[in-house]
Amino acid sequence: MNEENKLNQENLDFEKMNATLANPEFANWYYSQMVNGVNNNISIEDFVQIVQKYNLNKMD
């Protein structure tokens, strides 16, 4: 794995990530993204970034 693709694990908020993954609203949003043609072949790093972006958008 190259340095660009590594997640900065020190900055991950695992409690917030777990809460997001348990949120039915997130599950529905994510499912609709997958159904609507977003690339289904994503890495775990990509998935974590999707969750983080979702949380950032929810705070706006």
Rank of each mutant, 00 (worst) to 15 (best):
I50Q: 09
N11D: 07
N11L: 13
N39I: 09
E3N: 09
P24A: 12
G37Y: 15
A22D: 01
K58S: 09
N41F: 14
N36P: 02
M34V: 01
L12K: 07
I44S: 03
K16A: 15
Y30M: 04
N36I: 01
E25S: 08
G37N: 13
F26Y: 11
Q9D: 06
N11V: 05
K58Y: 07
E45P: 02
Q52D: 09
N41P: 01
F47P: 02
Y30D: 00
Y54D: 08
E10W: 10
M17C: 11
N18E: 07
A27E: 04
N5K: 07
N8V: 11
F47V: 02
V51L: 12
N40C: 04
M59F: 12
G37T: 08
N40R: 10
L21M: 02
E15N: 15
Q52K: 15
N5P: 01
E3Y: 10
N55M: 12
F26G: 00
N28Y: 08
A22C: 01
E4C: 02
E10R: 07
K53I: 05
N5L: 04
Q52R: 14
N39S: 12
N28V: 09
F26H: 01
Q49R: 14
Y54L: 08
Y31I: 00
M17E: 03
A27F: 06
I44Q: 06
L21R: 00
K58N: 11
Y31K: 01
I42G: 04
Q49A: 07
S43G: 05
Q9T: 12
M34G: 01
F26K: 00
V48D: 04
I42Y: 13
F47E: 04
Y30P: 00
Q52Y: 06
Y54H: 10
N55I: 02
I44F: 15
K53H: 13
M59P: 06
N8I: 09
